[in-house]
């Protein structure tokens, strides 16, 4: 994304090249142009631009892509942690 970049080497995105059928759907759905096609297979060319939205993984017909997607704001994560700790049921007041 022009003019913006976030932390490097953190995304959980994984592409299993053996499973890839080269349909190009991941290129179509990615809002940050993380993928490109080379020799009828998808490749990750812009790993650090991945924001883990999960669009590629859910739309991959051969389940070749994995990414841990979910809420990405501090309040949301704190609520999630509180929920996991079962301290009390956190109120959902996020986006």
């Amino acid at each position: 994304m022009k003019g913006f970049s976030y932390l490097r080497n953190v995304a959980t995105l994984k592409l299993n090249i053996k499973k890839c059928i080269g349909c190009g759907r991941c290129l179509e759905v990615c809002p940050h142009q993380v993928f490109s096609l080379a020799e009828k297979k998808a490749i990750i060319t812009n790993f650090d631009a991945c924001m883990e939205c999960g669009a590629c993984a859910i739309n991959c017909p051969s389940t070749a892509i994995f990414v841990d997607s979910g809420v990405g704001c501090a309040t949301g994560l704190i609520n999630e942690w509180i929920h996991e700790q079962k301290m009390f049921s956190a109120r959902k007041k996020c986006c």
């Binding site: 970049s5 924001m51 883990e52 809420v71 990405g72 704001c73 501090a74 996020c94």
Partner: peptide
Amino acid sequence: AFYTLNFTGCTPFTSRSGVKKEM
């Protein structure tokens, strides 16, 4: 700093793993 970190939830480019690391 806390409030700006929380703004990651409003942007179209920050990743969940990145926010976790920052936190």
